[in-house]
Design a protein around this nucleic acid. Sequence first.
DNA 1: GTCTATACGGCGATAGAC
DNA 2: GTCTATCGCCGTATAGAC
Lengths: 193, 193
Amino acid sequence: MQTKEKLLLESMELFAAYGYEGTSMAKIAEKVGLKKSSLYAHYTSKETLFLDVTEKITNEYVHLIAQSIDNNEQSSEKRLYQSFMIHVKDLVSDDASIQFYNRFVQYPPQNLEKELFAYLERSEEEALRILVKEIENGQTVGEISKDLEAKQIAHTYFCLLEGLSNEIIFYDYPTLQHHAERIWEVFWRGIRM
Amino acid sequence: MQTKEKLLLESMELFAAYGYEGTSMAKIAEKVGLKKSSLYAHYTSKETLFLDVTEKITNEYVHLIAQSIDNNEQSSEKRLYQSFMIHVKDLVSDDASIQFYNRFVQYPPQNLEKELFAYLERSEEEALRILVKEIENGQTVGEISKDLEAKQIAHTYFCLLEGLSNEIIFYDYPTLQHHAERIWEVFWRGIRM
DNA sequence: GTCTATACGGCGATAGAC
DNA sequence: GTCTATCGCCGTATAGAC
């Protein structure tokens, strides 16, 4: 792997775990196996490095949502459930890119809010669009109630995923997965025909 | 107000907004109206100040949950809805203590994880206990489905609140409130008799 | 209890040799 | 592109006068 790629990956993991201010260029350098001054041969500043990571992660996020929905399940219910559980699996398996995304959506570092927001707004809209499409499909085939707006349902879906992401810290994999299944049960009862 | 009280309050607001590493003793001092060296007459370190804030906030959090449930509505549905919307109102009205709580539940500062966790575990359990009690009551009087466990429903409830807290950054008050009402609709459909 | 002054370390970033 | 050396700044924290 190229040094620059490695730099993006390793710094992303540190940012996800310790935040922007909690991650120093020295720590990144150590993880990559360089001296910190060498990092500046690849990036002119910590800020530009962070924003490059952000760009990469927001693109991956949209891709992940699209792919998880595009599974081989027959019914809309099963497709949505599969997608939901894939996301949960990524959460609990310590997927750093998901953690990076969730962390900085909520708590952008000072002075970088504007640039960050530009990336995140784009990906949030795109992810919502993908989900709304699938839900409308479920409404058309008569699986999902037409009393609710597709957008409203999609918002609830993401809201639950984000809520679940907050609980990783308290529970282990089997517990959270079980928990996610119970939450899905409540959600599905809420939107089914 | 005593200096020490003011110190707790003002530093809490800064921690909530900018995180632990993002908040310096100098900034806290400036907000309180002191020089930063004077803070050390009240607290021996930034860490002990932060942990004192944490203790205060976790106590307040449990109190808030208890109080919001203890409203004058007649039905279980209305009591739970009221409580949900009070929490949402606090979220959108920039209630710093709620933001402090949510932020550090998810992203504890390095080296303080253990101490923080001790406080948070206690308050999370207590808050869950309070909600479970109200839900069981709703099941007894026949408003809420007995097909679901009360604990499972309570978890979903908190999960939605936490998910909603993630969205403050994107929406204004009326939008988020409307959004919360729509989410409640889905939730209630999911748990009602 | 609050101030001024200061210690000391870590931070992001740069210069220049190889 | 990576290194050593170094800069200037800001972080937490302390000493001592008032």
